[in-house]
Design a protein around this nucleic acid. Structure first.
Length: 430
DNA sequence: TCTGGGGTCCTAGGACCC
DNA sequence: TCTGGGGTCCTAGGACCC
């Protein structure tokens, strides 16, 4: 068993936005209150966010939207395309409010944050959590739930119950053994953070049904069959914090941009446009974290749900020296695509991935190449990024990305970008 | 007709070296 | 002809997360 760093007596809160994408839509469109509302993934594909009314209709997470369109309509419900400009902005607002309570915070995902409460003077954690919930709601319009305990995994569980049991009023602290045990015994093992479908099946076959069973399982058994991650989960359930709070997340080690197309694509010209835009987006994300990449991969796939000949392939190339220069990355991505492309297939999806990512300042100076940071290419990218951030995405782009973009994803039920575009700001009737 | 996108970590096994 | 053992590095694949 390897050495695992752990801390006792941590106090960690997990703040999780309730039905986040749906809640964002409801802030600006009150007509959506109390009705079934579902938000779809890119391309209007799967259901990725559900209001409580949708959950009550037993519509599962991740289900294809078209299967449930009729049922939702029948209950006076709505399905919306996802509006990431809106959700991203609302997320920033929620995080900003949370950071006023403690700067020691990890933005874990677009709708969740872990807060380190160590050192804060709090006498009643549950009351503190409920107060936090009230303030976030009042200032942003977003309902959240707050779970508090001694490890991230336990805070997740506290949050789970806080969200579902009305008596907890959106806030639950699990700090005393009796309450922890009760909470664990009422939770299916498959709901535990870190236990996915495979492990759930395995654990249940071995008589472990609840989170409490897992906590009481043999250390050696878990370490052997669930690797160190599973063992960490076990320690976390026992109240030892060993999954650290990451306040300043490291730069991404790989960056992907890929999309399914709005319709089937068979010609090379549409694919070239798409790959050009994905490569552009990847390079932008790379520069946002002040990095360069040493490897570029392009992949291409047909529709795996459809009968007929399938083609799924990828190709990589080294970037030497590592680069974040859009024209170079796009040009190389397009050559890879041309090598990959086979005519005669109906393509559904393509993507670009950057890996072997390092900080731009850490790239060793080469005798042959000029230093990228001092180069005009670097200044050109800075100018391009600043224009696109001030005047909106794609103000400036490469011609190879095309203008018609007929392959673009479907977003037929898109709400306005209420908070990030002046043209789409909500109007108040006078 | 219509089934998402973007990440991380761990392990096993092969290649290669001495 | 015989054919060890230990170490490292890399990659593919599988598990998980939201």
């Amino acid at each position: 068993m390897q050495q695992i760093g752990l801390k006792e007596n941590q106090i960690i809160a997990l703040v999780d936005c309730n039905n986040f994408y749906v809640s964002c839509e409801r802030v600006f469109n009150p007509k959506l209150q109390k009705r079934p509302v579902a938000v779809l993934s890119n391309n209007d594909g799967c259901i990725v966010s559900r209001s409580n009314e949708i959950k009550a209709l037993k519509i599962p997470m991740g289900a294809p939207g078209f299967k449930y369109a009729a049922l939702i309509k029948q209950h006076n419900g709505v399905m919306l395309s996802s509006n990431y400009a809106l959700y991203g902005d609302m997320s920033t607002r929620v995080m900003e409010v949370l950071s006023r309570f403690t700067p020691a915070l990890e933005e874990y995902s677009i709708d969740e944050a872990f807060l380190n409460l160590e050192g804060l003077v709090i006498t009643d954690y549950e009351a503190w959590g409920r107060n936090l919930k009230r303030i976030v709601h009042r200032w942003t319009g977003i309902p959240v739930s707050v779970g508090i305990s001694r490890s991230k995994t336990l805070a997740k569980i506290a949050n789970h119950h806080a969200k579902r049991v009305p008596g907890f009023k959106g806030g639950l602290a699990l700090l005393e053994e009796k309450r922890i045990e009760a909470a664990l015994s009422r939770l299916d093992v498959g709901e535990v953070w870190g236990v996915g479908r495979q492990y759930e099946k395995f654990l249940k076959q071995n008589g472990i049904q609840s989170a409490l069973d897992l906590r009481n399982a043999e250390d050696k058994f878990i370490d052997r069959y669930m690797t160190v991650m599973g063992y960490k989960t076990l320690l976390e359930l026992k109240g030892y914090s060993c999954i650290e709070l990451d306040e300043a997340p490291a730069a991404k080690k790989s960056i992907v941009s890929s999309r399914s197309f709005g319709r089937m694509v068979n010609g090379l010209s549409d694919l070239l446009e798409a790959v050009s835009s994905y490569a552009t987006r990847c390079a932008e994300k790379l520069r946002e974290q002040h990095c360069v990449a040493g490897n570029l991969t392009v992949f291409l796939a047909t529709n795996r749900f459809k009968e007929g000949p399938q083609y799924n392939n990828s190709r990589s190339i080294s970037l030497e020296p590592p680069s974040a220069y859009t024209p170079e990355i796009v040009q190389k991505a397009l050559s890879l695509l041309e090598e990959l492309y086979l005519p005669g297939f109906e393509y559904k999806k393509a993507g670009v991935m950057l890996s072997e990512i390092v900080l731009e300042a850490d790239v060793p100076l080469s005798i042959i190449d000029t230093n990228y940071l001092d180069d005009k290419r670097f200044k050109l990218m800075q100018a391009m990024d600043s224009l696109n951030s001030t005047y909106g995405a794609d103000t400036l782009f490469l011609a190879s990305s095309g203008v018609k973009q007929e392959w673009q994803m479907k977003r037929s039920k898109l709400s306005p970008r209420y908070t990030t575009n002046w043209q789409e700001i909500p109007k108040v009737k006078t």
